[in-house]
């Protein structure tokens, strides 16, 4: 299958090739613009300022924690959607994808209304446990997880639906329980989908801006992630914003490429 695909690639129809190249250019040219406009001469000085590293570290930590949270909740949710046989499943699926279409700022407001100090749930968190999520690093993680989780759920659910359920049935006839089947049969068979979803989810969390600044506010070292730092730097010193953007770009490309190589490439 894959061999045949490769042999035909030499004569790709022009109808596809042209828009494909246009699409590639459309995605790449803005990044080239960043590179051209970067203040290369002063780059090292700007790069090694404490603020940059503080924001970058916070971004990486929060995106990773948010992804872990998404994995913990999202994979079971995807399983429920694909295998649970729930009534009104398409409606539930629509709700799962709501954060994808919701403007992130609105997502942030919604989170405030529920998890804020006066929120439906948040007020109890505050009075019973003294926990208040807004303006904390935990709040950043929650905001990023809210926005990024649909990417994971959709990927994993797609993989689950494409996976052959007969293996699970075979495992069941051999006496495996549902949890054992899930762990030893289902999960390995959908691993590429889970990894792809995880990568997407992490990338989305890393770039999250709107929900974060609305729900978690902006304070250096606590909630100022790279996208927030870029936004605020843009208002006073656009060159700093470009430098910050380059750092974020470089880190994400390196991480994404490494993950692809290690996981998705290896599994193909």
């Amino acid at each position: 299958m894959s061999r045949r695909g490769r042999s035909t690639s030499g004569r790709l129809p022009l109808v596809l090739l042209l828009p494909a190249l246009l699409g590639l250019a459309f995605l790449l040219v803005p990044l080239v613009g960043l590179l051209i406009k970067a203040p290369w001469s002063t780059l090292p000085d700007r790069l090694f300022s404490a603020d940059v590293w503080q924001a970058l570290r916070l971004s990486l930590v929060c995106a990773t924690l948010a992804t872990a949270l998404c994995l913990l909740l999202g994979v079971p949710l995807a399983w429920l959607l694909a295998r649970g046989g729930l009534p009104g499943r398409s409606l539930i699926r629509a709700f799962v994808t709501v954060p994808l279409v919701l403007p992130p700022v609105v997502g942030g407001v919604a989170l405030l209304l529920v998890l804020g100090r006066r929120g439906l749930v948040g007020q109890h968190l505050d009075t019973w446990f003294g926990v208040s999520l807004p303006f904390t690093t935990a709040g950043v993680v929650v905001a990023e997880a809210f926005v990024a989780m649909p990417f994971l759920v959709i990927s994993v659910e797609g993989a689950l639906r494409a996976a052959d359920p007969r293996y699970e049935e075979a495992a069941a006839t051999l006496g495996a329980g549902r949890w054992l089947t899930f762990r030893r049969v289902t999960l390995p068979s959908i691993a590429p989908g889970v990894v792809a979803g995880t990568v997407l989810c992490w990338a989305r969390a890393l770039g999250e801006f709107g929900a974060t600044i609305t729900f978690a506010g902006n304070f250096p070292g606590r909630t100022t992630t790279m996208p927030l730092a870029v936004y605020l730097a843009l208002e006073t010193d656009p060159e700093v914003a470009v430098v910050l953007s380059l750092v974020l770009l470089l880190v994400s490309v390196v991480v994404l490429a490494a993950l692809r190589e290690r996981w998705i490439g290896g599994l193909r």
């Binding site: 506010g217 902006n218 304070f219 909630t223 605020l232």
Partner: peptide, 8 residues
Amino acid sequence: AQPDSLEQ
């Protein structure tokens, strides 16, 4: 000042 957030 000891702010919790610096708003945009």
